[in-house]
Amino acid sequence: MPDMPNLLMIEDDARLAQMVGEYLQKSGFGITHAADGRAGLALLDPPPATGLPDLVILDLMLPDMDGLEVCRRLRALPHEASRVPVLMLTAKGDPLDRVIGLELGADDYLPKPFEPRELLARIRAVLRRRGESAPAANRVMRFGSLEIDRDARTVALAGRPCELTSYQFDLLAALAERAGRVLTRDQIMEAVRGRELEAFDRSIDVHMGRIRAAIEDDAKNPRRILTVRGVGYVFAKQQD
Score class of each variant (00 low, 15 high):
D3G: 02
M4F: 03
P5T: 02
N6K: 14
L7C: 03
D12I: 02
D13K: 02
L16A: 04
A17I: 06
V20W: 01
G21V: 04
Y23R: 00
L24K: 00
L24T: 04
K26H: 07
F29Y: 05
G30T: 03
T32E: 15
T32H: 15
H33F: 13
H33E: 12
A34T: 10
A34I: 12
R38M: 15
R38H: 15
A39L: 14
G40M: 13
L41S: 11
L41V: 11
L41G: 10
L43C: 12
L43W: 11
P47G: 11
L52R: 01
L52N: 02
P53M: 15
P53C: 14
L55N: 02
V56K: 07
I57Y: 05
M61Q: 06
M61L: 07
M65N: 12
V70M: 12
C71N: 11
R72F: 14
R73Y: 14
L74G: 04
A76Y: 11
A76G: 02
L77S: 04
L77A: 05
P78F: 05
E80Y: 00
A81N: 06
M88L: 15
M88K: 05
L89N: 03
G93C: 03
D94Q: 14
P95W: 09
P95C: 11
L96M: 13
V99E: 13
G101R: 14
E103C: 09
L104R: 15
A106F: 13
A106S: 15
D108C: 07
D108T: 08
D108L: 07
Y109N: 03
F114A: 03
L119Y: 05
L120M: 06
